[in-house]
């Protein structure tokens, strides 16, 4: 297991290195780095000073060295707009996004798995047909429009929930969290639902397909032939087998949750990294965009690692391979 972890973390660092290289050279090919990294509103002398400070007057490979050195030290430049290190800015907004993303994933799994299993076990029941139809719609509804509709119904027409913002937060270990206050929770619920519905539809489909397949397996019939209760058969023998694909796909989808959080946060004015990204793009605050990119790459790599570990915990058959043959 340890060897496996070390190897995986090595791979993760490699991917990050590759991405850093692409980002760096991408900035050169896509645009002039001076435009990207220097505040265009500064006067000429200040711009030249900044260029010298950032090493933009040096040859490209030397600059790449600076860039990497900065990266290793966690220095990704300073936001033009906020005049703060970009990485600090991003990290201060990260908890809001993570809270939203975790709640959305939890909703997707806790609601999606039971519904999908039901539909898989009783494919012909009217309720199953309704579940599957709803999942096609949930799957097809564009995320941002769905968010608007949630606002329209709950905030504008019925006026029961706020239309946007984060509401009151409580600091836990220095991290502000919304879900612990009633006001925060009321602000959290719509964006979380918005982010969850697509995943939920996906989970329903996976769980249904998995259940339909697993239910036909000999070991399920054998479990019944041993007189186990239906709750045990479905809740342990079927569930544990369908969780393998569900967790795999969900893990891969976590990246998508972060991506779609950009949309949801914009719709609900949720102060996370996604909203920050869109604002920064609008304000041409490029260091923040770069910092966002590096952070999400890091997050994705870590998520993939966690998924692989979860996978080997769930499926004993891959555990042997995990040990590094």
């Amino acid at each position: 297991m340890l060897a496996y972890l070390i190897r995986r973390i090595g791979q993760a660092l490699l991917v990050m290195g590759v991405m850093a290289t692409i980002v760096f050279f991408g900035l050169y090919t896509v645009g002039n780095p001076v435009d990207l990294l220097i505040n265009p509103e500064d006067d000429l002398a200040a711009q030249e000073a900044a260029m010298a400070r950032l090493g933009l007057d040096k040859p490209i490979h030397v600059q790449f060295g600076y860039f990497l050195a900065g990266l290793v030290q966690g220095d990704l430049g300073t936001s033009f707009v906020h005049n703060r290190p970009a990485i600090d800015l991003i990290l201060s907004r990260l908890p809001a996004t993570l809270e939203l993303a975790f709640l959305a994933m939890a909703l997707a799994v806790l609601i999606g798995v039971p519904l999908g299993m039901y539909a898989g076990l009783r494919p012909n029941a009217p309720a199953s047909k309704a579940i599957m139809a709803a999942s096609v719609v949930g799957f097809s509804t564009p995320n941002f429009w769905q968010g608007l509709m949630l606002i329209m119904l709950f905030a504008v027409f019925w006026g029961v929930l706020p239309a946007g913002g984060r509401g009151d937060t409580v600091d836990v270990l220095g991290i502000p969290l919304s879900f612990l206050t009633l006001d925060g929770l009321s602000h959290l619920i719509l964006p979380a639902l918005n982010l969850a519905i697509y995943k939920m539809s996906l989970v329903i489909r996976l769980a249904r397909a998995g259940t339909a397949e697993v239910a036909l397996q000999d070991y399920v019939k054998y479990a019944r032939a041993r007189g186990l209760s239906p709750v045990r058969v479905v809740g342990v023998h079927v569930l544990k087998n369908i969780l393998i694909p569900v967790v795999t796909v969900l893990g891969l989808e976590t990246g998508n949750v972060i991506a779609f959080a950009v949309v949801t946060e914009t719709v609900f004015a949720w102060p996370g990294i996604g909203k920050l990204l869109i604002d920064s793009i609008g304000l041409l605050d490029r260091p923040v965009v770069v910092a966002y990119l590096m952070l999400t790459v890091f997050l994705f790599v870590m998520i993939n690692l966690v998924v692989d570990i979860a996978y080997s915990v769930l499926d004993p058959r891959v555990r042997i391979r995990g040990g590094g043959k």
């Binding site: 096609v136 719609v137 799957f139 097809s140 509804t141 564009p142 429009w145 608007l148 509709m149 606002i151 329209m152 905030a155 504008v156 027409f157 239309a163 719709v267």
Partner: peptide
């Protein structure tokens, strides 16, 4: 239509969204 939605003038956002949704559902089905 987003800004108008908050003041209750829903149709500017609503109908294009329905068109989008119907198109996507048809393709997915």
């Amino acid at each position: 239509g987003f800004d108008y939605l908050l003041s209750g003038r829903y149709w500017i956002s609503f109908y294009p969204g329905v068109a989008l949704l119907v198109t996507l559902v048809c393709i997915n089905v």
